[in-house]
């Protein structure tokens, strides 16, 4: 109890400064701190937050005008203050936040673009995982009912009805011509009937990539990621004559989608 009492004055003074910088005190009382000094901290905070979100959500911030994005950053700071001590890990709630903003009424694809940016950012810094080659023998030794696939942790599936892969490629593809084609495709898709589809984020080496999956690829991959067996997952796409597990597997190995194969005893 004595210890708590002894610490109380510091808590008050630090809380006071935090509250003033974060504009948490609606009275506008600066509690004795200089206006100039507080304004520097407020500008630094906003600049750091803008820089961080601009890096983490490059597609979204290229789509937005700077005055709009500055206002969104301010709102997001209040809605979801950083709590990790690393600006690079701030933004896991940004896609949900975007879905609630006025600008999403006019541009409803922004929330899905944010989700895609976030997962690409996470994959960029995710663990370096490759296929455990020795686990391949499970494919030959076990029945499909007993085979479970553990994916590389940098593989993520999203679903969207918007052409977010084309929007992403339209801003980030290495080739200028491909960027233009992707933007044209995105515009065309946005003016047509929108269809739900799966998007996959994966990391073959260090640079994450995004790809739109066919309906069967999406269903099959989602089922495996959810922990279903190979047999259960294959059943989901048995009506698709175009789907080939052999082709999927070669592609998955080539693109570093699989961490290892596991025998399931359930």
């Amino acid at each position: 109890m004595n210890d708590l009492l002894e610490h109380k004055p510091q808590r008050t003074e630090q809380q006071r400064l935090l509250a003033v910088i974060w504009n948490d005190d609606l009275s506008g009382n600066l509690h004795g701190f200089s206006v100039q000094g507080i304004n520097i901290y407020r500008r630094n905070l906003l600049a750091n937050a803008q820089r961080a979100l601009g890096i983490t959500f490059p597609t979204v911030f290229k789509l937005l005008d700077s005055d709009v994005s500055a206002d969104l950053v301010k709102q997001f700071l209040q809605a979801s203050p950083p709590d990790q001590g690393d600006w690079g890990q701030w933004g896991d709630k940004f896609a949900d936040f975007m879905a609630t903003t006025d600008i999403s009424d006019d541009y409803p694809f922004l929330a899905d673009c944010s989700a895609l940016d976030w997962h690409v950012h996470c994959a960029l810094h995710g663990a370096d995982q490759t296929l455990d080659q020795s686990s391949l023998q499970i494919l030959g030794n076990c029945e499909p009912e007993q085979v479970v696939i553990i994916f590389n942790q940098n593989v993520k599936l999203l679903s969207s009805r918007y052409p977010v892969v084309d929007i992403f490629d339209g801003h980030h593809h290495d080739d200028k011509q491909r960027r233009q084609v992707a933007l044209n495709n995105a515009n065309q898709a946005l003016s047509s009937a929108l269809v739900d589809h799966h998007i996959m984020i994966y990391r073959p080496e260090f640079q994450p990539r995004v790809i739109k999956l066919t309906s069967s690829e999406g269903q099959f991959t989602q089922s495996l990621i959810s922990g279903n067996s190979l047999a259960e997952s294959l059943d989901l796409v048995s009506n698709d004559a175009e789907f080939s597990f052999q082709h999927w597997l070669l592609n998955a190995i080539e693109h570093n989608l699989i961490h290892y194969f596991k025998e399931s005893y359930s």
Partner: peptide
């Protein structure tokens, strides 16, 4: 520090009072 009961990071290096406490 805490704002509205939630732990948060200030986003900057904030000075401290130089006291024995």
């Amino acid at each position: 520090g805490h704002l509205q009961g939630q732990l948060m990071h200030s986003g900057d290096l904030l000075p401290i009072a130089h006291t024995h406490n």
